[in-house]
């Protein structure tokens, strides 16, 4: 049995179809990148994996069970922005998850327990390269450092699934490369199943084990919402050629043009 199973999944908002007839099997430990034009349902799919949205039809199963209907500690998320808490320092941000888990009522750790947790936290902060900034506030960090923090904050919980919603979209290209290395390193160390939404086709081709392209197969110029998107390419990474890249690129940009027209 596969880890995540998507079976004939549809998502509609009123008459607007966002996703149609999605089928997918994902094994534990895979690193899937989701690419496609804006409005092709990548983020909607991610929200369903998170529990923020429910499918309109079809099945979405985690180890044979229906996905929980609200976010929980087994599924971590990193958004493009606003993922960290501005009122907590770097250390406190990473510590937060451990505190919430261990102290349902107080939500804070003290004494010995706190010291033990902080050891773990410092290790995590070290491994994302923020050791020098451990006591800074998020607003004192650059965009890239904030994303490192958000990643550390999620990874320390050892989630079974980690969802990344265009996490590096707002970063400079150079920084983005460093972040790719970081996320690959953490993924290898922890074996977490990762889904990453990205706008950047290059990023999708390079990162992870599997590339999923969300695109519209059918398009009605008079009524763009009539048809939804589905997965048009499902490729293992490493076996992708220049030709495939170009054909995906042209198909995705055509859809983008249709949607914005």
């Amino acid at each position: 049995m596969s880890f995540i199973t998507v079976n004939r999944l549809w998502k509609e908002y009123g008459s607007a179809v966002v996703l149609e007839n999605l089928n997918l099997q994902v094994k534990q430990g895979e690193f899937c990148t989701l690419v496609g034009a804006s409005g092709c349902g990548k983020s909607t799919f991610l929200k369903m994996l998170l529990g923020q949205e429910q499918p309109s039809r079809g099945e979405l199963n985690l180890e044979g069970q229906t996905f929980p209907g609200e976010p929980d500690r087994n599924r971590g998320i990193v958004f493009q922005r606003y993922s960290v808490f501005p009122h907590l320092t770097v250390r406190q941000n990473v510590l937060l998850g451990l505190e919430l888990e261990q102290k349902p009522f107080l939500g804070k750790l003290f004494g010995q327990q706190r010291r033990e947790a902080l050891d773990k936290v410092d290790g995590m902060i070290e491994s994302v390269g923020l050791a020098h900034a451990a006591n800074k506030w998020p607003h004192e960090l650059s965009g890239g450092m904030q994303q490192r923090l958000a990643i550390a904050q999620s990874f320390i919980m050892r989630p079974r699934v980690l969802l990344l919603d265009e996490p590096f979209g707002a970063l400079d290209p150079g920084i983005r490369g460093d972040m790719h290395e970081l996320i690959l390193k953490l993924w290898r160390e922890t074996g977490t199943t990762i889904f990453m939404v990205t706008h950047d086709l290059q990023e999708g081709f390079y990162l992870g084990t599997r590339l999923l392209v969300f695109d519209k197969v059918r398009n009605d110029p008079q009524q763009p919402e009539a048809y939804g998107a589905t997965i048009t390419y499902d490729l293992p990474i490493g076996e992708t050629s220049r030709q495939v890249y170009q054909s995906i690129e042209s198909s995705v940009s055509e859809t983008a043009r249709n949607l914005s027209a």
Binding site: R73, I77, F79, Y82, S83, L96, G97, L100, A150, M157
Partner: peptide, 13 residues
């Protein structure tokens, strides 16, 4: 931000 509300739930709050 809505993102914060989601994030803290994924941390188990």
């Amino acid at each position: 931000p809505q993102e914060q509300l989601i994030k803290i739930q994924t941390l188990g709050a």
